[in-house]
Design a protein around this nucleic acid. Structure first.
Length: 770
DNA sequence: AATTAGGCATTTTTT
DNA sequence: ATGCCTAATT
């Protein structure tokens, strides 16, 4: 147990730690030891001031940050740490609502609707209201609704506001959307916050309990909180006023998710007695990196100047490298990574590649495979968003709450059981007219005693039969709801016919069954819980996990991550890629012409740069693929905002005679796998026999939650011009040309048949040599 | 009812 | 290039 934690702090940090009485605003620059301050502050409260750990809460942005905080606390405090509340706003609220939700119309078994469910709900609402999704993008409507709710404006207030035609439409969808949620006993992300706020607002005695429970409240990443989150913090800290918020306006990058930077200003109004403590000494980065980042961010107008400094060395210059296209960009990054690894100074886990949009990750994944560098990728296609996982989850939710029509609609004909669009339309119609849930309609329709004739049913005997079977399926599974969770999931997979359905799927069945297996594994930790509590807790965790939570920083692999997700992390070596106009800053920020959006892009760039401890690379490509074709891509304006004397450009400093085209050619021929023992023998000959099909690496992005994978062997086969081949569809032909295309081979074949000359990918086309 | 083909819009970041 | 939705086909 560490009792001398105070000795390790600088003056400002110490002040932040010891200043426990009353409100505090800590403005923490990047790398200024923010997490250490928060944990030390908690330790100080408990050990020096005798505060009961039970009375302390710290709210963070991600589960990962929360669990790291807990880890650090337990090494400082031992068993007391477990009694401190450390969680995200969303899971905090969800905990409150499970206990007290009845007061705001939520049953304790409520489910949390994630993004996909929300979109489904919006679409259903639009269908009900006969609004054309082509004229009104569901996504935009949702974001409007979410924006409203995150400012604690419910649909009644929303429709009252004078608005344009668009908002009038949104208002109608909003109402329907809210009705569906409440009928489904569901809460979306914003509800977790808004309903908690409502609860506290309307039930002073409940609020009082929480005020007295959480006498000390800390909020991390305060610059990224929205109005609702800050509102809740204010409510809880209302009487004791021991609210400590920690943030950095320069790292505010979530305004698109309704984070409201004005919270920092409001805080000073709401708590005028608050102490402001700036943390300005940076322990993370070299002088050069810090100065570059500082210069960059100083271009923002909406900002308060900070005086960041460091005792660290000057270190290396920031390396700016320009590649021909995105492939070469990736190639240059990987080449440099191999060099860094060979130097022995850093290992894989010290290195991160950061990009603006997830779509950029693919090139780097393929490059990692080619170079056989193990990597972890955060995000991309999310595990819980896979169809099979969502289907099983929807079954589980339906069991918990059959009135959840969104989930029910998802699985009513999955796998197919003769309940097609027509039947579903009819059920939703009846449901709408009679204000019933879909399941209630199904029960009525299949109940021989009820008088259904009056409803004007237009369903075949056959459909009614299938409905009856479906009802029995759900009822029978529902009787097992208090069984062991693993058991329950297994019953669902078996009895619904889902297992069989996947077994018959030649293409993806196997992988999907594995995913379900993985899903069951992750359910295991909830299996010991009593009755249905395991189920509700599991479903909650499924909805509230974030990708970053799965990042394993002890793993020996490099990290591929978006700039947003990288916030709060640090790496000895960072590659920021796609430093181009249109990527960073993103096109959208440029096109709107809104200066504040550009400033947010700049902050994003700032966040990226300040993740780096000693090596920072900023990469760009001259041309980038866009909508199929290649388009020229101009260097990011942010590059020119970094002082030239901090930058080193290998291409220009050393080998300025070489133009990009020749570099491109050279690089695509460079031996990518020189550190791989087997590769030399493997790639010498075209030794592939006709039945030794080349396997294209599985599309990299669809893997587990966090892909952690070492590359499969490099394709070793080749075709040479003049060779005769045969193709399943096109028949016989002669190879004209064969060249590398990514990991694959592109073969040009002239066929004898009418097919003529075709370009084929060796891995996909089943070519047989003759 | 289910599968397939073709047309259309589309690309930010996520608790 | 990809994915999503509608229309057409069996």
């Amino acid at each position: 147990m560490d009792t001398n934690f105070l000795d390790e702090l600088n003056i400002a940090q110490k002040k932040a730690v010891e200043n426990t009485d009353g409100p505090v605003l800590i403005v923490a620059g990047p790398g200024s030891g923010k997490t250490r301050v928060i944990t030390s502050r908690i330790a100080y409260l408990i050990q020096r001031q005798g505060v009961n750990p039970y009375n302390i809460a710290a709210v963070t942005f991600t589960n990962k940050a929360a669990s790291e905080m807990k880890d650090r606390l337990s090494s400082m405090l031992g068993s007391d740490a477990a009694r401190v509340t450390a969680s995200t706003f969303h899971s905090f609220c969800s905990m409150v609502l499970r206990r007290e939700g009845a007061a705001v119309g939520l049953d304790r078994d409520f489910v949390i609707f994630d993004d996909d469910d929300q979109i489904d709900t919006i679409k259903k609402a639009m269908k009900d209201l006969d609004i054309d999704p082509k004229s009104f993008a569901p996504r935009n409507i949702l974001s409007r609704i979410s924006n409203s709710k995150s400012q604690l404006i419910d649909y009644e207030q929303f429709v009252k506001q004078k608005g344009n035609y668009y908002d009038e439409v949104v208002g109608r969808v909003f109402e329907n959307y809210e009705n569906t949620l409440s009928q489904s006993n569901a809460a979306d992300f914003d509800d977790l916050l808004m309903k908690t706020h409502d609860l506290f607002l309307n039930n002073p005695s409940v609020l009082e309990n929480y005020q007295n429970r959480f006498i000390y409240l800390m909020v991390d990443e305060f610059q990224d909180t929205n109005i609702a989150q800050y509102g809740i913090a204010k409510q809880i800290a209302g009487t004791h006023r021991n609210l400590c918020v920690v943030g950095d306006p320069d790292q505010s990058i979530y305004s698109w998710r309704n984070a409201d930077i004005r919270n920092i200003l409001s805080f000073r109004d709401d708590f005028p007695e608050a102490d402001l403590i700036p943390l300005e000494e940076n322990y993370r980065s070299t002088q050069t990196i810090l100065e570059g980042a500082r210069e960059l961010i100083s271009a923002n107008k909406e900002r308060v100047e900070k005086n960041l400094w460091t005792r660290n060395d000057k270190g290396n210059l920031i390396t700016v490298v320009e590649g021909y296209n995105e492939d070469e960009e990736a190639h240059l990054v990987l080449k440099e990574i191999v060099r860094i690894l060979d130097s022995g100074k850093h290992s894989q886990k010290d290195i991160a590649v950061m990009y603006r949009v997830n779509a950029q990750s693919r090139t780097f994944e393929m490059a990692c495979q080619k170079y056989r560098i193990p990597y972890q990728i955060v995000g991309g296609i999310k595990f819980y968003q896979r169809k099979e996982i969502k289907d099983i989850t929807a079954y589980l939710r339906t069991l918990l709450n059959p009135n959840d029509s969104i989930s029910l609609a998802r699985i009513i004909n999955m796998p197919t059981r003769g309940l097609g669009q027509r039947t579903i339309n009819e059920i939703t119609r009846i449901a709408r007219v009679n204000n019933l849930s879909m399941f209630e309609v199904i029960e009525k329709l299949t109940d021989p005693d009820s008088e259904t004739e009056t409803l004007g049913i237009q369903l075949s005997k056959r459909a009614l039969n299938s409905l009856e079977q479906f009802r029995d399926l759900i009822t029978s599974l529902r009787s097992k709801i208090d069984n062991d969770l693993i058991n329950l999931i297994d019953s669902v997979v078996q009895q619904t016919g889902y297992h069989k359905y996947l077994q018959n799927d030649q293409e993806q069945g196997e992988e999907r069954l594995e995913n379900i297996q993985e899903y069951m594994n992750s359910a295991r930790e909830y299996a010991h819980m009593e009755n249905r509590e395991g189920l509700t807790t599991f479903l909650e965790s499924v909805a509230l996990v974030s990708d970053i939570d799965d990042l394993d920083d002890s793993e020996e692999s490099i990290t591929l991550i978006t700039l947003h997700q990288a916030k709060g992390l640090e790496f000895p070596a960072v590659f920021m890629v796609g430093m181009e106009e249109g990527i960073l800053p993103h096109r959208r920020a440029i096109e709107t012409g809104d200066p504040s959006e550009l400033e947010e892009e700049r902050r994003l760039c700032y966040v990226g740069m300040t993740r780096a401890q000693s090596l920072l690379y900023m990469m760009r490509a001259f041309r980038r693929g866009f909508r199929g074709g290649l388009e020229p891509s101009a260097p990011s304006r942010f590059l020119s905002e970094i002082p030239r004397n901090l930058i080193h450009m290998p291409g220009l400093d050393n080998q300025s005679t070489e133009n990009s085209t020749t570099r491109n050619q050279k690089s695509s021929q460079a031996n990518p796998g020189k550190n791989i023992k087997r590769s030399k023998t493997m790639r010498t000959q075209n030794t592939v026999t006709s039945n030794n099909r080349i396997v294209k690496p599985k599309s990299p992005t669809r893997r587990k939650r966090v892909v952690n994978k070492i590359a499969p062997p490099i394709p070793t086969s080749s075709y040479s011009a003049g060779e005769k081949v045969s193709h399943g569809t096109f028949g016989e032909g002669i190879v004209m040309n064969c060249e590398a295309s990514g990991d694959d081979l592109q073969v040009t074949v002239a066929f004898k048949s009418d097919a003529g000359v075709k370009k084929l990918l060796a891995s996909l086309a089943k070519l047989t040599k003759l």
